[in-house]
Simulated scan of single mutants.
Amino acid sequence: MEKIQNEQLELIAGTHSKNRNSFCGDTYYFAQEGNSFVCLLADGLGSGRYAYESSQAAAEIVKRDWQEESVEGMMNLINTAMFQKRGAAVALFKIDFNARSFEYTCVGNIRFYLYAKDGKLTYPLPVTGYLSGRPQRYRMERFTYEPGSKFLVHSDGVNLLNTKELMRYRSAEQIAAELDAVALKSNDDATFLVGNLL
């Protein structure tokens, strides 16, 4: 697992490929510059090398453009990059730590949850389908958070039954340990990122 911790955020990410395949079709990327943070989770269609190539192409765009481009702008670039590739489900968000706000969008079966300290669970519904190079509409979501809120984003290889219960009393490390155990047993590529907003 990969972990970062600073004054604004504690984040733990983990990923496991299907059947220990050398290519994982899931790719995540995150970066922070000052009070701005970006996070991508891309799940290439299927598994193996071509799924890996699609999800990596999404990550390369975010890595290159996230400081200049909006979330919607990056999704358009990722969609264009999927032309003649397998395609990918993509969740992408930016956090503004000063404004304590998220800008979020998702196409495909990646799940995102924001759990507030008062027990409120925000769960934006993704647009069905996947990015393939064809014209695509995005549902842009914006929401604010309080310090002490937690978020979770995971690919469909992570099978969760009671997300609210999982996030209620546990620390980011405890949540990540449980998710890692679930991901290990998955018969699909499985990736998660869990964050604690400080």
Rank of each mutant, 00 (worst) to 15 (best):
E68I: 08
E69F: 14
S70I: 04
S70V: 05
S70T: 15
E72A: 12
G73M: 01
G73R: 04
G73F: 04
M75Y: 07
L77V: 04
L77N: 10
L77C: 11
I78P: 01
N79Q: 09
N79V: 01
T80N: 12
T80D: 13
A81V: 03
M82D: 02
M82S: 01
F83C: 11
F83L: 13
Q84D: 13
Q84L: 10
K85Q: 13
K85W: 02
A88Q: 04
A89T: 01
V90Q: 06
A91Y: 02
A91M: 09
L92S: 07
L92T: 03
L92K: 03
F93Q: 02
F93Y: 13
K94A: 02
K94R: 14
I95M: 12
I95N: 04
I95C: 06
F97N: 08
F97L: 11
R100Q: 15
R100Y: 02
S101G: 11
F102M: 03
F102C: 05
E103K: 05
Y104P: 11
T105N: 01
C106Q: 07
C106F: 12
V107G: 02
G108W: 00
I110C: 12
I110W: 03
R111T: 10
F112R: 06
F112V: 05
Y113I: 05
L114V: 01
L114H: 10
Y115N: 01
Y115C: 02
A116Y: 10
A116H: 15
A116L: 14
K117P: 10
K117A: 15
K117W: 06
D118C: 07
D118F: 08
K120M: 12
K120D: 06
T122A: 12
T122W: 11
Y123E: 15
P124N: 05
P124G: 07
L125V: 13
L125P: 08
P126K: 00
P126M: 03
V127K: 15
V127I: 14
V127H: 14
T128P: 15
T128R: 12
T128F: 14
G129K: 07
G129V: 06
L131K: 00
L131H: 00
L131D: 00
G133S: 10
G133P: 05
R134Y: 14
R134W: 10
P135L: 09
P135V: 08
Q136A: 09
R137W: 10
R137F: 14
R137N: 15
R137S: 15
Y138N: 03
R139M: 11
M140C: 11
M140D: 06
M140I: 09
E141D: 14
E141A: 08
R142N: 15
F143I: 07
F143W: 07
T144E: 15
Y145I: 08
Y145T: 05
Y145V: 06
Y145R: 03
E146P: 06
E146C: 08
E146I: 04
P147Y: 07
P147A: 13
P147L: 12
G148L: 03
S149G: 06
S149K: 00
K150C: 00
F151E: 01
L152D: 00
L152S: 01
V153A: 04
V153I: 15
V153C: 11
V153Q: 02
V153G: 03
H154P: 04
H154C: 14
G157C: 02
V158R: 03
V158N: 08
N159E: 12
L160C: 13
L160P: 05
L160M: 12
L160V: 11
L160W: 04
L161S: 14
L161M: 12
N162Q: 09
T163E: 13
T163G: 08
K164T: 07
